[in-house]
Computed example of a mutant assay.
Amino acid sequence: MQIVRTLPELRAALAGRGRPAFVPTMGNLHDGHIALVRQARPLGDVLVSSIFVNRLQFLPHEDFDSYPRTWDADCAKLEAAGCDIVFAPREGDLYPEPQTFKIQPDPALADILEGHFRPGFFTGVCTVVMKLFSAVFFASGGGTAVFGKKDYQQLMVIRRMVQQFALPVDIVAGNTERAADGLALSSRNGYLSPEQRAAAVQLSQALHALAQAASAPDAAPLAALEQQAMEQLAQQGWAPNYLTVRQRDDLQAPQGPAAPGTLVALGAARLGGTRLIDNLEF
Rank of each mutant, 00 (worst) to 15 (best):
N279V: 03
N28H: 11
G141S: 11
V201S: 03
A269Q: 03
M130G: 13
G82F: 15
G18F: 02
F122W: 05
R248L: 06
D250C: 08
V172L: 05
S134P: 02
R11V: 04
E231W: 02
T25W: 04
P254T: 01
V129M: 10
Q163S: 09
V129P: 06
V23A: 09
L7Q: 07
E231D: 12
R178T: 11
Y191Q: 03
A211W: 13
L222H: 14
M230A: 10
T100V: 15
A259Y: 08
T262N: 00
M1F: 02
E79D: 13
R69S: 11
D151E: 03
T244E: 07
K149E: 11
L29H: 10
P221Q: 02
A200M: 01
F22L: 14
P20F: 02
L113T: 05
R159W: 12
Y152H: 09
G272Y: 01
V245P: 04
Q227E: 14
Q212C: 12
E79G: 12
G27K: 02
P257D: 14
G182V: 07
A180N: 06
D74S: 11
Y152M: 05
T274A: 01
K131P: 06
D74W: 12
S134K: 07
R275E: 04
A13Y: 06
A234P: 10
K102M: 15
A253C: 06
G124Y: 13
D181C: 02
D31R: 15
A173D: 06
A108S: 10
E79C: 09
F137C: 09
T100K: 09
L43G: 14
L29A: 07
I3P: 00
P68E: 15
H61N: 13
P20I: 03
A110H: 08
P60W: 03
V128H: 08
L155C: 14
K131C: 11
N54D: 14
E62W: 10
A220K: 05
V264C: 13
G92F: 13
A224N: 09
Q2D: 02
R41M: 06
K131L: 13
D72T: 14
S66M: 09
S49A: 13
F52Y: 14
L225V: 06
V128G: 12
L109E: 04
R69E: 08
